[in-house]
Each structure stands twice: as C-alpha cells, then as structure tokens.
Simulated scan of single mutants.
Amino acid sequence: MTFHEIRFPASLSFGSVGGPERRTDVVTLASGHEERNTPWAHSRRRYDAGMGMRSLDDLSALIAFFEARRGQLFGFRWKDWSDFKSCKPSGTPHNGDQLIATGDGVTQSFQLIKSYRSGDSSYARLITKPVSGSVRAAIQGAELSEGTDYTVDTATGQITFSVPPEAGAAISAGYEFDVPVRFDSDRILTSVASFQAGTAPDVPVVEVRI
C-alpha cells in the first residue's frame, strides 16, 4: 500500500470538521416496515482539512503537504482531535483503558482495538496507527515495559509480547492514535481574495483501510 508514515500538521487539522460515516441499505416494504443491512463491518471517517486554515502560511503548508503526497496517491496520518486516545479526550492513556484480547498461552501478537459502548451494544474499532511512544500495555493489570516485555508496530497497530501471555490472561492497553487517510481529491482550489474574506478552501480527506 502506498502510505507515508507522516502526520498531517496537527495545528492545521485542529478546527477541521468531520467524523465517522456508515453505509446502511434501507428497503421499505409494502407494509411500511423496513429491512436494514450494511455491507460495511467498520465505519469510515471523513474530514474537511480546509476548515483548519487560518492564514496564508497555513495554505502554503497545506499545498506543500498535498504536493508531497502527490494528491490522492499516498496516504498519511491524521489527528482527529475529537477522538485520538484510548480514554476520554480530557484523560491520560492508562494501561487498563482497553481490553484488547485474552491470552491463550501461544499467541504473542495482538491487534490494538478501541471499544465504543452505548447501552448493551458495542463496536470494536481496529487501531492501526498508534502514536510512537504512547502505548502502555498490561497483562492482568500489571504494567509491562515497552522494548523489554513487548514491542509495538506503529505502522499496523500490532503489539507483540516477548513471552506469550498465559491462557485466560487479560491483555489491556492505553495509547494515542492517528487515523490513516488520504486526500479525496487530486486538486486544491485556493483564492487569496476569498480566503482573506473568510472563505476556507474545500480540502476533503477520507479514511483508508490498512
């Protein structure tokens, strides 16, 4: 996959708009009842990077980043300021934030996930772009040391333990993460006059599957 392990300037993504989207097929029957189904197991996020532009220097940084990614060709990391931690945005990641797996005594590598819960329902999101140095892991609540007890692949979100966790052991982690995205257009239309008048350019960004 053509992906650059570089983050879109966080100062520019701050103030952007966007969030998750789902795809649901809705069929209305003759009785008026509905049948609903989805072809997507996971949501996909979209953002508008143009809303974070505040100065002509910001526009210059945007254009440089866009050109270096060759438009839509190369993906990159994006900080979603409303959802970038394993805990609440106001909190500090803790090794017990997310239960990511249960040991079987054999498996050493596990995928980082983040669970979203509401009532009796929940959704497990795959976390593929953790921020380097932010991951804290624990087995049965006992915090481990990165580099000694486990390693983290920040390009895939895989955490690998030096020794397989025992069968039945709860494996948990806390972390910060980015969203893998690409530009959703091969062009950026800018107008200095419009920008100075308060009109931001339209710069669509869409999540990519890793």
Rank of each mutant, 00 (worst) to 15 (best):
P93C: 07
I113R: 10
S82M: 13
E67D: 14
K88L: 13
G71L: 04
Y116C: 04
R77A: 00
T107S: 09
G105R: 09
F76V: 01
I113P: 13
P93R: 07
C87G: 08
Q108N: 04
Y116D: 07
F66E: 08
D83G: 03
S121I: 09
L112H: 03
A101K: 05
Y123W: 13
E67C: 12
T107L: 03
F66H: 02
S86C: 10
K88T: 13
I113T: 15
S121A: 11
G75E: 01
N95F: 15
D80C: 00
P89I: 13
A101C: 05
G91F: 09
I100Y: 06
L99M: 14
G119Y: 04
F84V: 08
D97S: 14
F84D: 07
K79N: 15
G75L: 00
Y116S: 06
S82L: 14
D104T: 01
S109T: 12
R70A: 02
S118T: 11
C87D: 07
I113C: 14
Y123D: 12
D120W: 06
F110H: 06
Y123K: 13
R77C: 00
R69N: 11
G91Q: 11
E67A: 13
P89T: 08
I113F: 15
R117S: 14
N95A: 15
F84R: 12
E67H: 12
T92S: 15
Q111I: 00
Q72M: 15
Q98A: 08
T107K: 02
W81G: 04
L99I: 13
F74Q: 06
F66S: 05
F66K: 01
K114V: 07
Q111A: 02
L73Y: 13
G105P: 04
K88I: 02
S118Y: 10
A68Y: 03
S109A: 11
R70Q: 03
Q72W: 02
S121H: 10
S82Y: 07
K79M: 13
R77Q: 03
D104N: 08
W81Q: 03
F110A: 02
G71M: 03
V106H: 07
A68L: 09
D97Q: 12
T102L: 13
G119H: 03
S90N: 08
L73T: 14
F76Q: 00
T107Q: 08
E67G: 04
G71Q: 01
Q108F: 03
L73K: 09
D83L: 05
E67Q: 13
D120Y: 08
A101I: 12
P89S: 05
L99P: 11
Q72C: 14
R69D: 01
K85C: 07
S82W: 06
A68K: 05
S86K: 02
G75T: 01
Q108T: 12
S86L: 11
K114I: 06
S122K: 07
L112P: 03
Q108W: 02
Q98E: 11
